[in-house]
Design a protein around this nucleic acid. Structure first.
Lengths: 141, 141
DNA sequence: TCGCTTTTTTGAATCAATCAAATAAAGAGG
DNA sequence: CCTCTTTATTTGATTGATTCAAAAAAGCGA
């Protein structure tokens, strides 16, 4: 089973604070949230943490490998707790909604470029762009 | 042969201005430049255009389909004149340099996700991350 | 519990980009 | 070629997301 937020923090060698636990918990409920959304969720759940502290916590958790930061174009940075499986994302071109996409083909043959331009490739990131179900059916405002 | 900057502007139904021509020319020489770099290149080449106008021009050219905007994480928006071939990019995780990567396999089989989450997919964007040749060999500051 | 270290708060600053009003330039029609 | 209308550019201010810095508060090993 999934370890608790506290357990994950300890395992990562981070101090266990109320703020970090709350951020991890909210993010698990609402993946792909940006810092401001996390802040509002933490506040709504009765927590007290400034927006700056939320940025700070998210940066610490990202560096510790407990959350992953994604930065789609034209959107503030978003965060998710699903890590370690290099899945991808589809982003709505109209409303910006983000949804997980499982790795396209178990092993990803075409994610090894033929010519790397001399780079030592570390990761491949795939982002799909399209219309989300809601925006597909809503009137073209 | 490639049409002139002026020709491309006319073909796109845009007014031909000195600023737009200069931006297109500089961008052809130095692809993947950000707005500030374009501005400095235009100025260095004897052109006179404010940074705001450069942003304006880049936005207009992007909307007209004459340039493509790429927004790698932790970097201001970058622009390129190579369009129409959906190629990809490799970004240096240390210095942020960007290099073109030709489309991985002519036809991209694994760029059609099995589960689209109900989205109407429009495009797939692939970004590779790694160390550029310079950063591979430079000391680990 | 004490004391050192790390975190959070508080308040300001940065960076990239956008907005709005005034001025200047493009180019179609005469 | 000149004028008029439309579209660009300048000028100056503003926004949004994030980061920085110093002071106050909290975690946790001894």
């Amino acid at each position: 089973m999934t370890p608790t937020a506290e357990g994950r923090l300890r395992a990562a060698g981070l101090r266990v604070t109320a703020g970090r636990i709350r951020v991890l918990e909210r993010l698990a409920e609402a993946p792909h949230s940006d810092a401001d959304t996390v802040h509002r969720m933490v506040t709504a759940a009765g927590g007290h943490l400034t927006l700056q502290a939320v940025h700070n916590v998210l940066t610490d958790l990202t560096e510790a490998g407990l959350v992953r930061r994604i930065e789609p174009a034209r959107s503030p940075a978003r965060y998710e707790t699903r890590i370690g499986d290099n899945h991808h994302h589809v982003v709505c071109t109209r409303c910006g909604a983000v949804t997980d996409i499982d790795c396209v083909v178990g092993h990803a043959p075409c994610l090894m470029p033929s010519e790397t331009g001399g780079y030592a490739i570390q990761t491949a990131e795939v982002t799909f762009w399209g219309l989300c179900p809601e925006c597909r059916t809503s009137p073209i405002t």
